[in-house]
């Protein structure tokens, strides 16, 4: 699929942001700011859009390493949440991504007093096969957080074998982003068949696709969650 110039620019910014998150997750370095301090000007706008695309994972180090995020980062995150609400006709993944950001914002920003936003619903996955289900869950991998319940995570919890099959399919198709996202979900699901070999599977996905920061991010998140990280 051909990408527009702005789309390519945005993807690059998202990758840069994801790289910072991966570094923080790997090093446990939660003192260093991942998000840009200021979002004024052209570069700031691009960064803000990138935060919106990375979604809740922009604050993943704070969530998984259980450390309070830098208030400046929270401010940027909040600005991204507010600047890019989903349009009325937005795709379900867009709506869920925004919902996940709002949930995270409530967790990290005590000044947010609004009640939790309504969940967008999972009806679009009612008739989905395991292939589509896994692809959509992988797109929504930022929602895969330990101890965080939502309709999407409950749906995933009802389909451990389907998601495991999707992981196998994604690896065979060399779709490393989907494999990493599915692998992240699998770390949270009950009754995943042992034969899937998830630990070595995550290593393999990182080996093959880890040069993509979004792949590395999900693999590293999965590892932290496997080792017992709680939100």
């Amino acid at each position: 699929m051909e990408q527009s110039g702005t789309s390519t620019l945005l993807q690059g910014a998202v990758q840069d942001l994801a790289s910072g998150v991966v570094s923080a997750l790997r090093g446990g370095d939660h003192t260093r700011s991942v998000l840009p301090a200021g979002t004024d000007g052209e570069a700031g706008d691009l960064a803000l859009a990138a935060v919106r695309v990375l979604g809740s994972d922009a604050l993943l180090p704070a969530l998984l390493l259980r450390t309070p995020p830098d208030p400046a980062e929270v401010a940027v995150f909040r600005k991204a949440v507010e600047a890019y609400p989903p349009r009325a006709d937005a795709a379900p993944t867009v709506r869920w991504s925004h919902w996940g950001m709002a949930r995270t914002l409530r967790r990290v920003d005590p000044s947010v007093t609004a009640g939790p936003p309504d969940e967008p619903g999972t009806g679009w996955l009612d008739e989905a096969g395991w292939q589509t289900l896994t692809h959509q869950l992988a797109v929504l991998a930022p929602l895969a957080l330990p101890g965080e319940d939502c309709a999407v995570s409950r749906l995933a919890g009802c389909h451990p074998v389907d998601v495991a099959r999707g992981f196998v399919r994604a690896v065979r198709r060399r779709d490393w982003r989907q494999a990493a996202g599915a692998g992240r979900w699998l770390t949270l699901l009950p009754a995943v068949p042992d034969t899937v070999g998830l630990a070595s599977g995550l290593d393999f996905v990182e080996l093959m696709g880890g040069q993509d920061p979004l792949v590395a991010l999900h693999v590293q998140a999965a590892r932290l969650m496997r080792s017992g990280a709680r939100v």
Partner: peptide, 17 residues
Amino acid sequence: VTYLADWLPPWLDTCLE
């Protein structure tokens, strides 16, 4: 039997693709 029942679907799916 369990192993094959679990994993035949993605193998078949990708071979067909």
